[in-house]
Design a protein around this nucleic acid. Structure first.
Lengths: 336, 336
DNA sequence: TTGAAAGCGCTAACAT
DNA sequence: ATGTTAGCGCTTTCAA
């Protein structure tokens, strides 16, 4: 019912609570071997559990880190969170999660919630590269460390962990070309996501390298969702655009595209090859007919965790930007 | 840098901090309209943010609820968490997550962590129906409310939210039969998961109802993972067991089964229909060739959240068991 | 309606 | 090596 406190232990042993506190905390710095032994034993016996609340109040710290992601439907962010939480917990931090559901307003509320919770740092993958710019800056101005990962923003001085989307996209498209495809369309992501722009650039440059045509109708604004992808491909077919491969921005839009093609009785990937940049094992399993380039999500989580902890320790540390190249392993669609 | 406290506000206005506290808390119960107005205004102006740590220490509560799940690879638990967190946050609780990775020992550590964090309640989907029985009981003995959901345990008196796995399985198998399948094998889950046993029972009874044979080799112990499912089907094929449909316990094992079949050039679902019980939209999208019965995961999260909050308010409340029947919508595999 | 004071559990000077 | 004391920021009696 009522938890044992250091006072209970002190009373039990007839010593002061400071000594108890020291014994339980300090590495036997200012407490004799024997008393320490006695204290540890009593703590064990009484089922002592330190009250983090009191410690944190005293130390003026919450030992909590917030993670804000645009979505958690695809396993990419889920994996990121799992790994980051593992690392941060081990380092004595708790983690508070929030999803923005690709909505700028929700993201704003999430960040405000994080501030209310007095998190000591925030890992964030943004849903818009500009809209909440001022909020990020105001958080930084209040000396709340931010680390941007995956979907980052320009013009903000903070640590960042990014994937080289340009190279990834270039490589993916090159792969499609080398496997015999010539008319590759791109389901582009929204222009307010930097990664989308990078990938579009990679796509274009790859086509150019191989002197393949890239008429305007090959690049479709396809959003981020399943329905967006479906709609985009539906549009292509309706317009009579002929293509033999698709390179899409998000996994969800690519899945939508696939679904749409199947409805139109396309054979995948014989008729149309689909490529995307995928973050997880699961995706490989659930849609083996889609060719993908791997995302180093674990590494990303590790770097981001490291960076936020560094920033918490020293807010004025330099703002490192980590760009993950990772292996460019293409998973071929062997199964279907 | 330094946060504004009620003392700052009190000083600013030349009044006592108790009055400030009251104004900021009480519904104008013991404070005059004017002072309250002034205080609110000053709080706003000084950017006051109450320190939850101090409040909670004073009130001896953490306003934190823990959620422990076996895995977060499939979106089922993710969706549960998302919905539960939404509800609990709205009610002023924070949420701490942990995954057991289907491992009893990890689950034990997770629960211990939750206890260390002094969560006020725990939502848990267990990974074994017996192994941590004593730990659950000891938590309850310490008056830490537990609510079991999805994968529950017997012999523990605590609120539970379950899905009627028996009916679901029965219905799924019946559906397979009615669509013309006669030799339906079952990738059974581990017997230490109650739901697995329920589903196996449903499977058997459905076959019996239609007077279909159910030789021992039709029921394979297939575990919970992708690799488990692959291995199970591999075994069936090697043994020369002939079948035209598979009903599997987990989504992952079913995906493994599918992958294995495809490697053996089976056409799905023409040659072999696959059925599973699926919790999420995503799964419908990513493997349309698998027929599934819906899981009411949102409802589950809502009930579980409600129950834990009730238990926190009154630990001696009756232990309600909610069994969700939900609609038995079968999603047909039209696409592939 | 307001204020003074005690105290939640812990840590960290400072004193012994 | 140990004890004493003063808070961290807040709520909540108890007085005024």
């Amino acid at each position: 019912m009522k938890y044992t406190t250091i006072i209970d232990i002190a009373k039990e042993l007839g010593i002061s609570k400071s000594t108890v506190s020291r014994a339980l905390r300090d590495d036997d710095y200012n407490v004799s071997k024997e008393t320490k032994q006695k204290i540890l034993e009593a703590a064990e016996r009484l089922g002592y559990k330190r009250n983090e609340l009191a410690v944190n109040l005293r130390k003026q710290s919450t030992r909590t880190i917030g993670i804000v992601v645009p979505e958690m439907i695809t396993p990419f962010y889920m994996n990121f969170i799992t790994r980051a939480q593992e690392i941060l917990n081990k380092a004595g931090y708790r983690v508070t999660l929030a999803q923005s559901h690709e909505d700028v307003e929700a993201e704003r509320l999430n960040l405000q919630m994080m501030e209310d919770y007095r998190v000591e740092g925030i890992l964030i993958s943004v849903c818009h590269d500009k809209k909440n710019h001022e909020l990020y800056q105001s958080l930084l101005d209040k000396h709340i460390p931010l680390v941007f990962f995956d979907r980052t923003v320009a013009d903000i001085s903070a640590p960042k962990v990014q994937i080289n989307d340009y190279i990834k996209a270039f490589f993916m498209v090159e792969y499609l070309i080398r496997s015999g495809k010539q008319r590759i369309v791109h389901l582009a992501g929204p222009s307010y996501i930097q990664n989308a722009n990078e990938r579009k650039k990679g796509y274009k440059d790859a086509l150019e390298k191989f002197h393949l045509p890239c008429p305007p109708e090959y690049i479709v604004d396809a959003g981020v969702n399943f329905a967006d992808g479906e709609r985009a491909v539906e549009g292509l077919i309706r317009q009579g655009v002929s293509f033999d491969a698709i390179f899409g921005f998000t996994e969800m839009s690519v899945l939508g595209a696939k679904s749409c093609l199947q409805r139109h009785h396309y054979h995948i990937p014989e008729d149309v090859a689909i490529g995307c940049i995928s973050g997880t094992e699961l995706c490989k399993l659930v849609h083996p007919s889609i060719t993908a380039v791997e995302q180093p999500v674990m590494q990303m989580a590790e770097e981001a965790s490291r960076l936020i902890m560094e920033k918490i320790k020293d807010f004025s540390a330099v703002d490192e930007t980590v760009i993950l190249e990772a292996e460019m392993v293409v998973r071929e669609s062997t199964l279907l």
